[in-house]
Structure formats: structure tokens, C-alpha cells
Design a protein around this nucleic acid. Structure first.
Lengths: 362, 362
DNA sequence: ATTAGCACTCATCTACCCTGAGTGCTAATC
DNA sequence: GATTAGCACTCAGGGTAGATGAGTGCTAAT
């Protein structure tokens, strides 16, 4: 731990930050001198503050104002002054538990989680779907739904289900369907998408005989299904919370910020960065540190959750730099743990992967 | 048509509204007198405006300001002074066409549509999924995906597909699956959800023998699937566009407005109202007329599209009262027509309902 | 090393005035 | 009777000046 700062400087920095987090106003020497733990005059504190400023932990918005933390100040605070509030965590955990258990659909579960986060913290929260790569085909089935309509269902790795209705010109009798099913399953089972090559396709079409066009359709759909599933989705909640923080509103960046949340592609950088550089689970990006340009006046706290098989998703919270880091970190931890747990259980429960199917069709 | 207003009054009202739509500033008598079509002095115009004010078409924000249209003024304008701009419509239609044709998935198609709308108009746009009621079951199929995992797929009316992975304790052999499939299909085919009563359930479980618990699971899922499908979803785009209109920002309602778009439940009133009171296709709600409290400082223009079988969805645009009604109406018309066309074609193409599957699972 | 005291800075607030756009009214004109 | 010119009046918005007060840095005393 940094010992650049003696105990008193630490204390003063702590008071400045805590105060500023709470009020959003610059903190002056007199305010600080009122703290019961500090038995020194405001003049002494001014001297200390002068030092802190020189060291880069705090700054003055203008000459006759108090001090506010710099990014470095926040960084110091986040690194050294936050510890888990176990009692409060327990409380939250109970709340989250109730909801999570009975929500089966992945999409809905994530939406609930992200909503809970934004409501608990009063900041904007985001969550990404697990980013799946290299899905394998586990099961394919065609069914005759009605004349000219064949339903193709495909189950991927992790019990993710896709389906698509195919319109076929020719009649396909039940027997042919049966044959095609066997053919498709034996040929494609266990393959990753990039393992389906021209030879496989040619072979399949060959063996399908009369119904080679159906096979083509199915293959096309398989490719689409997998591609789409690997595409990353982001849910956000509480985007309008940023309107509650004057420093963000006045910076004139509201529109840009809200835009970032609306066009979620912009966030992919953040998600990747967070998933890749994940050390102990929680990442804090303060100001400029954030890997997304438009968030540079904000702080971002992220965590990842484990969907199984090293497939990870991200949860994150975006707020003003003076956010309540303690509470945010606690909240993220709870949600992260809960998601990890749910997915882990489902994996056990279903004898395999998380039991969350997916959407599809056309 | 109202003949409360003589030609000159109409002309003046028209100038006031057009000017105000363009600038957002109150319009004064001198500005109006500069119009080449009006060969009268500003004094005359002042008299006319005085009349118009008395009749409730315009008002003054304060004594020494020009006039702005009242809700009644806008209403008159919308009812009498808008006519189709066919040439521009054609232009847009071409743009929309390109996209729509090849987008198969309902969800994606609607998202593209709503995005195109907000980008073309610079207002906020919304679109609701078709509100389906009384879905019928068309096809059910169970498959053995792996030990303890049975996949249930259900096709509803309109080729909407749902699927869910069921975790089963007992082993179910392929023969049993076959039997269950026949049983389920013969019993449930063509039924609406409210036609599945206790007697049906009891009968099914009876005939399922050993695997009655699987049947229970399937039934539960069927009910869920249908319920969920009937739940209405709303996509929005360009919510942040409202930040471009000072009159909305300054009213301090931004936060409330953005909140309305984020929590889409609030919009259900609007959607229902629009779908039910649909006369000639396009509805314009000016200010207070909107069926949603929080939109009372805005104007809302809506249309409905036909998903087939009298199943309707809504598309709408929300903007300031001084919105470019002409452009908005034109845009909505194009998108509405396109959606109608796509769904109609698909209905023909697939020999039946729109060929848009849906998501599901657990 | 700490503190008291003091001069200085500067954002914010209020009061005030000025300006200009726009009106309504009246009397003259078409 | 309709239109116009002229004029006094209103009022939001912008600008300026001064008062306020929070906060600082520096110096000299403790």
C-alpha cells in the first residue's frame, strides 16, 4: 500500500472524498476542521491540502473554491479505503435471491438483474448476455408442421435452442423427414460452425437425394442461428438516472451519454475490456480510465459472471465520478455471485449446461 | 370543413403555424406581413390575430411576444392543411423497401422499422409487437435431446414457435416420446389456451401413464408460452431526440419523458387507444389529447399495422407539439404500408400466417 | 509544527436598467 | 366599413454593477 501519505493526509483526503461524494460540492478547510477526529485548525488543514493538491490527489475548480478529488484521488480511495460491508450485503442478497430462483429465461433473468441494480444504486446499469464462441451443434430436428411448412429446431451447446420455420415447395413425407433427421444428426452432431465446410455440405446434399434443397435451407439456418447467438446483446436500465447528477447534466454531455446507452454497440469495447482484464472480479474505471470515450466524465464499475465453460458476461454500473463506490461494489458483488450460482446450479441440474434456451425463427 | 375562418384568417394561421414549426419562436405581426401573398399591413394582421386569439387558435406566451398556436390551432392545421406529398413518399418507400424484404425475424424487422422512423424524423419513435389474443395450438413436439433433457417445441397459430428444455427425472425412451407426441397433438391441436380445462388435463395425464409428470411440464410450458406471446412488447428508438427540442427540455419534463420511454408499460394505454380508435389509419394526438399523462406537452402520431387475422400492432412517433406533422405522417404511412405488405406476403407465401417465429425457452 | 489573523480572489446572487420586439388603441385614409 | 399609420405601453432577455461569502495563501506569533 502506498505510504506516500501519512495518516493525517489520508484522513483529510478521506473526509474530502466522503464529503464530496455526498454533496457534490467542493470541500473547504473549515468544513474539514469540524471533523471530531481532527484536532487541528483549518490553517493546518490548508497546508495539508496544499500538499495533497501538489501530489495530485485533489484540485480546485476555481481559486476561491474548496477542493474536489481528482481521478487519482478517487483511485486512491477506491484502492485503499473500501472494504466489504457484510451486513448490508446480506440484506441485499436476500432480496436478489427471491427473484432469481424462479426466473427461468435467460433474457428475463438478465433484465431483472439489471433492473435491480439500477434501482438499488440510482445509477445506470448494464448487463451483457454471455458472449459465446465456438458453439457446437448438439441436436437437430425437422418436423412436418403442415403442408409446405417444415419446422427446424436446433439445440446448441449449453442447451440453447433455435428454431426456424422453413417453407418448402415440395411435399416431404414423414418418412423422409425421419431419414433427414438421422442424416443431419449423424453428420452435424458435435460440429462447430467453422467445421462445416463445403465437403460436409456436398456430402449432405448428396445423401439427402430428393430433398437436398431442404438440407440447404437447414444449413443456412444453422449458420444464421449460431452467428446470431454469438452476437452480443446488452440490456440497460436506469439510463435516465444520470439526469439526477448536476455535474453530468451541466457538462452538456447528457445527450451523448444517453446516446451511448441507446446504441449499445458503443459499449462493446467496455464489455470486452472488462471480461478480458478481469482480475479479482470487480473492475473500477474512473474517468479517463474507461475504455469508452463518451464515458470519460463518469466512473464505471464492472464485474463478470460465469455462464459456464468459461463463457462470461458482464454486469456494470455507470455513474458520476462521485458515485457511492462502496454501495455499487457491494451490489455488483451480490448480483455477480447470484448469477454465478444460478448458472452453476442449472448446469448441475440439467446434467450439463445452463438450462436457458434462446429465441429464434423467421 | 370549418368555415368559421375566412381565407385570410386561414392564411395567417397557416403562416403562424408554419413559422412556429420551423423556428419554435412566437410569430409577430410584422413577420407575417412580410409574406408575399398577404398584401396588408401589420396593423391589419394584428386585428386578425386578435380575432384568431379570441377564437382560441393562437395565444401569446406573454404580453409583448408574438403568437403561438394553441392545441386547437394545431388541430385545425392537422385536420385541414396537410396533404400527402406523394413524391417524397416514393423516395422514402424505396429506402424502406430495401431493408424490409430480407429481414425475416419479426423482432429484428420491427427494430429496423422503428430505427428508420426515428432517424428519418428526428423524433422518438415506438413500435409495439402485434397484440395477439386467442392463440391456438397448431403443433407440439417433444424430443429426446439427451438423458434427462427433453425438448418441447410448440407451434402456435401464425407459425409462432416456442420451445423449452424440460428436465425430467425419469428416462423417457424414444417410443414413449412418440406416443406422447401423438397424444399431445391429437388432444391439444387447435385448442385455444382457455379451452384447456381441468378435464383435458386430467384426461391427458391419465393417458400418459408413466410419464404424466412430463405431460404436466409440457402443459405448464404451453400456458406460459402463450401467455408470454400475448404480452405486448414495445421497442423505442431515438428517445434522446427529445433533448433537441428546447421547449421540452425547459419544461423540466425530460426526465419524466425519458422515463416513459424506458418503462414501456406506461405506453400501453397509448397503444390500446391507438389500435382501438383507429379510423383511417393515422391518428394524431395533440398535447392533452394524448391518452398518456406524461406526453401532454408533446404530440403523438400513431398508425397501426396489420399482422393478419385482425391482429394489429402500433407504430408511433412522439415529438414536440411543433413537430413536422407532414413529414411524420408521410413517414408513418410508408412504414405502415410496408409492414402491412410484408406480413401480407408472408401470409400468402407460407400458405398461412406471417412466417415469423418467436423466442422461447428456459 | 501549529495557529491566528488578514488580505485577496472569485463564483454567485440580486437589483437595476436598457433594448427591442410586439401589442392594442386611436385617428386618419381609402 | 376596411385598412393603415402612428404612438404609447408592456415585458422578456441581456448586460452591468455591487454586495456577499466561502475559501484560499501568506505571514507572523505561539
Amino acid at each position: 500500500m502506498d505510504n506516500e501519505l501519512d495518516a493525517r493526509k489520508k484522513k483529510i483526503l478521506d473526509i474530502i472524498i466522503k464529503n464530496y461524494l455526498a454533496t457534490g460540492e467542493p470541500v473547504g478547510s473549515r468544513t474539514i476542521s469540524k471533523d471530531p477526529d481532527l484536532k487541528v485548525s483549518s490553517a493546518t488543514i490548508r497546508n495539508e491540502m496544499s500538499d495533497l493538491e501538489e501530489m495530485g490527489y485533489i484540485e480546485q475548480p476555481h481559486t476561491s473554491a474548496g477542493r474536489i478529488p481528482t481521478d487519482k484521488g478517487y483511485r486512491y480511495y477506491v484502492d485503499n479505503m473500501i472494504q466489504a460491508h457484510d451486513s448490508e450485503i446480506k440484506e441485499m442478497r436476500r432480496l436478489v435471491n427471491d427473484q432469481a430462483e424462479k426466473t427461468e429465461k435467460l433474457e428475463k433473468l438478465l433484465q431483472k438483474a439489471v433492473k435491480a441494480l439500477s434501482e438499488n444504486t440510482n445509477y445506470t446499469s448494464l448487463i451483457s448476455t454471455p458472449e459465446v464462441t465456438g458453439s457446437r451443434i448438439k441436436f437437430i430436428q425437422l418436423s412436418n408442421v403442415s403442408r409446405h411448412n417444415v419446422l427446424a429446431v436446433i439445440v446448441l451447446d449449453g442447451n440453447r435452442v433455435k428454431n426456424q420455420m422453413l417453407h418448402v415447395e415440395e411435399d416431404v413425407d414423414n418418412e423422409s423427414i425421419l431419414k433427414l433427421n438421422i442424416l443431419l444428426n449423424t453428420t452435424l452432431n458435435g460440429l462447430r460452425i467453422d467445421q462445416i465446410n463445403l465437403a460436409t455440405i456436398a456430402q449432405l446434399r448428396d445423401q439427402a437425394g430428393d430433398h437436398s434443397s431442404v438440407v440447404s435451407n437447414v444449413l443456412e439456418m444453422v449458420v444464421k442461428a449460431i452467428k446470431e447467438d454469438e452476437g452480443l446483446q446488452v440490456y440497460t436500465s436506469g439510463a435516465t438516472n444520470i439526469l439526477k447528477y448536476p455535474e453530468l447534466v451541466e457538462s452538456g454531455k447528457v445527450s451523448e451519454l444517453l446516446g451511448t446507452f441507446e446504441n449499445k454497440e458503443n459499449l462493446s469495447g467496455l464489455i470486452e475490456e472488462s471480461i478480458n482484464s478481469d482480475k479479482e472480479g470487480i473492475q473500477v474505471y474512473i474517468g479517463q480510465e474507461a475504455p469508452v470515450e463518451s464515458l470519460k466524465d463518469c466512473s464505471v464499475v464492472t464485474a463478470t459472471y460465469d455462464f459456464g465453460d468459461n463463457i462470461k458476461g458482464m454486469i456494470g454500473i455507470v455513474g458520476p465520478k462521485r458515485m457511492d463506490y462502496q454501495n455499487v461494489v457491494d451490489n455488483l458483488k451480490v448480483v455477480k455471485e447470484k448469477l454465478d450460482e444460478v448458472f452453476h446450479e442449472r448446469r448441475i441440474g440439467s446434467g450439463e449446461h445452463p438450462d436457458t434456451g434462446e429465441e429464434e425463427s423467421s
